[in-house]
Design a protein around this nucleic acid. Structure first.
Length: 139
DNA sequence: GCCAACGTTGGC
DNA sequence: GCCAACGTTGGC
């Protein structure tokens, strides 16, 4: 199963907001970038992702799970834009900051570092495991 | 608040 | 189909 990373600015959509949606989760709307959309189309039910705060915070905050496959984004005026639904799984016991990620040799190839503008991106198993470890997170 | 990097648009 | 101009994102 693939791993992912979803970016959000905390004042636009916070991890707490997603947690408040409970098991039903919420539509990850507003993505207007083909690469990001294509990544969401590849997602399967039950796949996990990190929830990352961009701009303000700049840290991996929690774990999320895909709970609905890609479908037309209800906020889009054009059906080319699609999104998945995700739900919060758990907050990370310790947040992993962008600074840490950039300094860590095992994480310096993350898309987050290499292509910081991509808002929905893949994470490798090795990167996933390493960040979970840094975050003191046990699945 | 600035600006670099990237993506998109539109004229040719 | 190229590329200049423009808009947006996100780190600093």
């Amino acid at each position: 199963m693939a791993k992912w990373l979803f970016k959000s600015e905390p004042d636009v959509y916070s991890f707490e907001q997603l947690q408040a949606k409970g098991k039903a989760g919420d539509e990850w709307t507003g993505i207007r970038n083909y690469q990001a959309r294509n990544n969401m189309r590849l997602m399967k039910l039950g796949e996990l992702g990190f929830f990352y705060y961009s701009n303000v915070g700049k840290a991996v905050m929690g774990i999320v799970e895909v709970c609905k496959l890609a479908h037309v984004d209800s906020t889009a005026d054009n059906p080319t834009w699609q999104c998945v639904d995700i739900r919060a799984v758990a907050p990370l016991p310790r947040h992993v900051t962008l600074d840490e990620i950039k300094l860590d040799a095992k994480l310096k190839d993350m898309v987050l570092v290499v292509n910081s503008r991509l808002s929905v991106q893949p994470v490798t198993e090795a990167q996933w495991a390493h960040i979970c470890k840094l975050a003191n997170y046990k699945a």
